[in-house]
Simulated scan of single mutants.
Amino acid sequence: MTNAKSALAAFRAAVLADPAAAQYLAEPIRPDIFEARACAWAAAQGVGLSPAMLQDTVAEPHLLDALPPLGWLPAKMVQENAIEWLHFAGVVPNHPFFEEAVQEAAVRPLNRLLRLRTSLDTLIAAPRDPGFAPAGFVFHMSRCGSTLVSRMLGAAPGQVSLSEPPPLDALVRTPFADIGYQVEALQALVHAWGRGADRLFVKLDSWHTRALPLLRRAFPEVPWIFLHRDPVEVLVSHRRMRGMHTAPGVIPLDWFGLPPEDATLPEAEFVARILARICEPAMAHAPDGGLVVDYAALPDAFFTRILPHFGIVPDDAARAAMAAAAGRNAKAPDTGFVPDRDAKQREADAAIRAAASQVRAALGPAALSPSALPR
């Protein structure tokens, strides 16, 4: 066992010193292919590694004192404010949700063998490219086309668009005694995601509008958009399948500035109250680098408003790739997009239509688009 641990430690050190080798070893999904590659490569480095060592060893998390090289991305927050890293070779992180890409990468044999972690202090202290900044943030009221926009942004070559990455949510919602430290951690995390990308976009969780002051402090120059939709249609969507933020007890109500007794409100009224609390800060901060976009204007507004707001002039290939993404179901890209506005409007009952009024009030003039007017 000692020899196995020594060999695996030497193997880990050699892989971390050779990004090209890490890419090569992280690609296989099948364990037998990985074992053959790993043993042959290790032998060439003078490391005696056997298939039995790879099969019988339960990897322990290894805390690094520096960031792993390009190819590894922050994947999750673990205990004691540590970051777990995964190598994403062959896994495009532009999934409908970042967690799906993490799950795909996590089963790669290399990631099961090398469980790499860094502390937040190490992440913050790591050198950064002073010229890097995320290209844009996507905020949204939920169920309003944000996944579509994220998928379109990530469709162009060289552009990475992460959709609701859990480590960012963990940093945003964890109470820090030192806000300055929290700001530095957010900056370092997003920078680490952008390594190797021409442009990085991040779609945040809908409830992150409540953290706009914090996020604007961390990224004051980054342009952002806020997507909204006719509240009637959003409320119908949540009636069909509740989002975690609209299920009482999942996200504390004080995050939304609501008292605990609101959890006993009728469903439509409760969900509308949550949606209103999501919209209010977005509308208040919109003059500070924000662009408000109605779902009804998509996908055309993506090209006429969103890309110009992010300072992007796509070439023909990028435009074609983005347009192709618009024709697919954003959450199930293997299927085509089917409009559902009319069905949701027909499904809305009097309770939903009454509750929608408080969301329209939170949106203010933005709610006066044709899609948001009562029928």
Rank of each mutant, 00 (worst) to 15 (best):
A7W: 08
A14I: 01
F34W: 13
E35I: 02
A42L: 01
A52D: 12
M53K: 02
A59F: 03
D65I: 00
P68E: 10
A82L: 11
E84N: 14
G90N: 06
V91N: 11
N94C: 15
A106Y: 04
R112Q: 05
L114A: 14
I124Y: 07
R128P: 08
P134H: 14
F139N: 00
R143A: 06
T147K: 04
S150N: 09
A156D: 07
P166H: 02
P167F: 04
A170Q: 15
V172E: 10
R173K: 12
T174Y: 02
P175Q: 03
G180D: 14
G196K: 07
K203D: 00
W207L: 06
R216D: 02
V222N: 10
W224S: 00
H228W: 15
V234N: 05
R239Q: 11
R240L: 03
M244G: 06
P248A: 06
G249E: 03
G257C: 06
P260S: 04
T264C: 08
P266S: 01
R273V: 12
I274Q: 08
C279S: 10
A282V: 09
A284V: 01
Y295G: 06
L298F: 07
I312M: 09
A317P: 05
D334C: 05
Q345E: 05
E347L: 08
V359C: 08
A366N: 01
S369R: 07
